[in-house]
Amino acid sequence: NRTSFTQEQIEALEKEFERTHYPDVFARERLAAKIDLPEARIQVWFSNRRAKWRR
């Protein structure tokens, strides 16, 4: 089942994506704690966001 992201979560994710397309585990963990999502969801979001960026 899909995770629905809040506007705040999307903004935080997009901001980090501007900084780096490949956040390391520490950056992902920090973001996970900040926006209250599992680190695995963040990893998947970045993977999908990079795919979207390449299109």
Rank of each mutant, 00 (worst) to 15 (best):
F17V: 01
P38K: 08
F26E: 15
Y22L: 04
R50E: 05
Q9E: 06
F46V: 00
Q7A: 13
K52D: 11
V44L: 12
A12R: 04
W45E: 01
E11P: 02
F17H: 00
A33I: 12
K15R: 13
T6K: 06
K52T: 14
A40W: 10
R30Y: 15
E16A: 11
F5L: 13
T20V: 07
F5Y: 10
I35L: 09
F46P: 00
Q7K: 12
R50A: 04
R2S: 15
R49L: 02
Y22M: 05
V25R: 12
I35P: 01
E11Q: 09
F26V: 15
F26Q: 15
A32D: 01
A33V: 09
D36W: 04
T3W: 05
W53M: 15
I35W: 06
E18I: 06
F5T: 06
S4M: 14
V44A: 12
N1C: 15
R19Q: 14
K34N: 04
Q9A: 06
I35H: 11
Q7Y: 10
H21I: 08
L13V: 01
R30C: 10
E14D: 05
A40L: 06
A32F: 00
S47H: 06
P38A: 11
I42H: 02
A12L: 10
D24R: 00
N1K: 15
I35V: 08
F17E: 01
R19E: 11
W53A: 13
N48D: 15
A27W: 03
T20W: 06
I10E: 06
L37Y: 04
T6Q: 03
Y22R: 05
T3F: 05
P38M: 07
S47Y: 09
K34C: 08
I10L: 13
L31K: 00
F26S: 15
E39G: 10
R41T: 12
E39H: 08
R19K: 15
W45K: 01
R54H: 13
F17C: 01
F17M: 01
R49G: 01
Q43F: 07
P23S: 00
I10R: 06
A12F: 11
R55Y: 03
H21R: 08
K52L: 12
P23M: 05
R30M: 08
S4E: 13
I35A: 07
F17D: 01
V44I: 15
W45F: 01
Y22V: 05
W45D: 01
Q43H: 07
R50Q: 04
L31Q: 03
K15L: 11
T3D: 14
L37C: 10
I42A: 01
T3G: 13
E16T: 10
L37E: 10
W53L: 15
L13Q: 00
R49A: 14
P23K: 00
R41N: 13
W45R: 01
K34A: 07
F26L: 15
K34I: 03
D24G: 08
V44K: 10
R41I: 15
E29M: 13
D24P: 03
T3K: 07
Q43R: 13
E39F: 13
R41G: 08
Y22F: 11
E39Y: 05
F5A: 06
Q9N: 04
A32P: 02
T6I: 02
R28D: 02
I42W: 00
R28P: 02
F46H: 02
V25L: 13
S4N: 10
